[in-house]
Amino acid sequence: MAAKRPSLADKIDINMTPMIDVVFQLITFFMLTLKPMITEGDFDIRMPLGTSAGAVSEDPLPPIRVRMTADADGERTGLTMNGQPVAGFDDLRRRIVDLVGIGPGSNADATEVELDCDPQLKYTNVIEAISSVSGMVQPDGTVVELVKKIKFAPPKK
C-alpha cells in the first residue's frame, strides 16, 4: 500500500501558542527573580574571648593603635596612629606601609592593629580604616596585603 506523498502545498501548521505561553511564563519568572548581584566581601577581625578584658596578647609586637574621634553627629573629627595625628586614610595606609614594609621581610603578619573609636562614630569610617591598614590596591589592580590582624579596643562607656 503506497502512502500518499504530501504535496508541497500541504503545509503542516504547528500550533505555537502553548510554547509561547510557556516561554513568556519563563521570562516573567526569571525577570521577577532577577536580583542585581552586588559583590560583597569580608574583613576578618580578631575578637577572641578574653581580649576585651585587656588580656595580654601573645604577639611580640605591641599593637598599632588607630584612634578615631567623632563629633556628636558621628562624623570623624580626628585620626591618630600611635598617638600621632594622621591626615586621612591614604596617609594612614602610607604610614602602615612605612612601618611594616611590603614584600619579603615585611612584618605585616606579626603586626596587629587595634581600632579605638568613639562610640558615635559612623561605621563606614571603621571599614575605611580597616581597608587602609589591611591592604593596598596597586595601579594595576593587584592587592598587596598589609596587616591582617585587626581588633577593636574595648568599648568605652
Partner: peptide, 13 residues
C-alpha cells in the same frame, strides 16, 4: 555604613 560604631561593638560583645 551610617550606624554607630558603638552599636557594632556592642553587637560583637
Amino acid at each position: 555604613g551610617r550606624s554607630r560604631t558603638g552599636d557594632v561593638q556592642e553587637l560583637i560583645k
